[in-house]
Amino acid sequence: MFKRSFKLLFALVFAGPIYAHEFWISPVDFEVDVQSPIAAHFRVGQEFKGGSHSYLSRYTTRHELHQGGAILEMSPREGDRPAMQYPGLEDGLAVLVHETTDSTLTYREFDKFVNFIKHKDFEGLPEAHLARGLPEVGFVESYRRFAKSLIAVGSGVGQDRPVGLEIEIVALSNPYTEDLSEGMAVQVLLNAAPRADVQVEVFSRPAGTKEPAGIQLYRTDADGIARFPVRTGHDYMIDNVALRPVEPTNTDDPVWHSLWANLTFAVPAD
């Protein structure tokens, strides 16, 4: 009975209304001492607020820890919470990486699809949907999540780099070691190519608080780079979404596929 209930709860959370929910890696601590344990939760929610969820292998494609160009083996157990755990690392910047499997949702109201694509700034897609002869209700979308998180071990020195996710956000600045007075720079990649002129959503809040998140929208330049101001003593979540048409074979097949990139980090207090 417990397994059935847990499976249902997980399905409701991870296959819930995609237009309203983010998935992110939430470290217990963004800064840790050398060889101190690293732990991070999976969270699903809105506006940088969400409940913690366990590691489950059947919903996992990649589950990794990167440091200094090396991929370090993680040995998760079913139901781990925090979902990402590692006993300790040498000095440097650590990057947690998680990719889910595909999930699906069925739209019962066309307005919800329209609200989602407006929020994520997919210009012209309501018209494209109807031009394909697709129904306004009862159609299916598949989606996949690609999340990263930056943790400073000791000094936190180092640099984020592409890790080969289908869609990913790469930090071009190290928030733990660099002067960010001119802003934080990130690059959005899709199939290893820069995503030019797309929306980047930036969520921020004071570290260790439950204050409502500040939310700002930015756009990438021709090189897929977005730069935005940051404040010391704040946690950040960066989001970018791509949406692709899919040609269904059967009536219940997805007609759209969305890819969600997410990056979390902190800017230390002065």
Score class of each variant (00 low, 15 high):
Met1Glu: 14
Lys3Asn: 11
Arg4Trp: 09
Leu8Val: 14
Leu9Gly: 12
Phe10Pro: 00
Ala11Arg: 15
Ala15Ser: 15
Gly16Phe: 09
Ile25Val: 14
Ser26Met: 07
Val28Glu: 09
Asp29Lys: 10
Phe30Trp: 06
Phe30Glu: 03
Val32Trp: 00
Ile38Ser: 01
Phe42Arg: 11
Arg43Gly: 05
Phe48Thr: 01
Lys49Leu: 11
Lys49Pro: 00
Gly50His: 01
His53Phe: 15
His53Thr: 12
Ser54Gly: 10
Tyr55Thr: 09
Arg62Tyr: 04
Leu65Lys: 01
Gln67Ser: 11
Ala70Gly: 01
Met74Val: 13
Pro76His: 07
Arg77Gln: 14
Arg77Trp: 05
Glu78Trp: 05
Gly79Arg: 03
Met84Leu: 15
Met84Cys: 06
Tyr86Val: 07
Tyr86Ala: 09
Tyr86Thr: 06
Pro87Phe: 04
Pro87Arg: 07
Gly88Tyr: 06
Gly88Ser: 08
Leu93Val: 12
His98Ile: 05
Thr101Asp: 09
Arg108Thr: 13
Phe110Arg: 06
Asp111Phe: 05
Lys112Pro: 00
Phe113Ile: 07
Val114Glu: 05
Asn115Thr: 08
Ile117Ala: 03
Asp121Val: 09
Gly124Lys: 02
Leu125His: 08
Pro126Ala: 07
Glu127Ala: 15
Ala128Leu: 13
Ala128Asp: 05
Gly133Trp: 02
Pro135Arg: 06
Glu136Ser: 07
Val140Asp: 00
Arg144Asp: 04
Phe146Met: 06
Phe146Gln: 02
Leu150Gly: 02
Ile151Leu: 14
Gly154Ala: 12
Gln159Cys: 11
Asp160Ile: 06
Val163Asp: 02
Gly164His: 02
Leu165Asn: 13
Ile167Trp: 00
Ile169Glu: 00
Val170Asp: 02
Asn174Ile: 11
Pro175Val: 11
Thr177Gln: 13
Val186Tyr: 00
Val186Glu: 02
Arg195Ala: 13
Asp197Gly: 09
Asp197Ala: 13
Gln199Thr: 06
Val200Met: 05
Glu201Lys: 12
Val202Arg: 00
Phe203Ser: 10
Ser204Leu: 03
Ala207Arg: 10
Thr209Asp: 10
Lys210Ile: 13
Pro212Leu: 09
Gly214Tyr: 01
Gly214Asp: 12
Tyr218Asn: 08
Arg219Phe: 05
Asp221Pro: 08
Ala222Glu: 14
Ala222Cys: 06
Asp223Leu: 12
Gly224Thr: 06
Gly224Trp: 02
Phe228Ala: 11
Pro229Trp: 05
Arg231Asp: 08
Arg231Phe: 03
Asn240His: 14
Asn240Cys: 13
Val241Cys: 07
Leu243Met: 14
Pro245Phe: 08
Val246Lys: 12
Asn250Lys: 13
Asp252Tyr: 07
Trp256Cys: 01
His257Ile: 04
Ser258Ala: 15
Leu259Met: 10
Leu263Gly: 03
Leu263Tyr: 01
Phe265Leu: 06
Ala266Lys: 07
Asp270Ala: 14
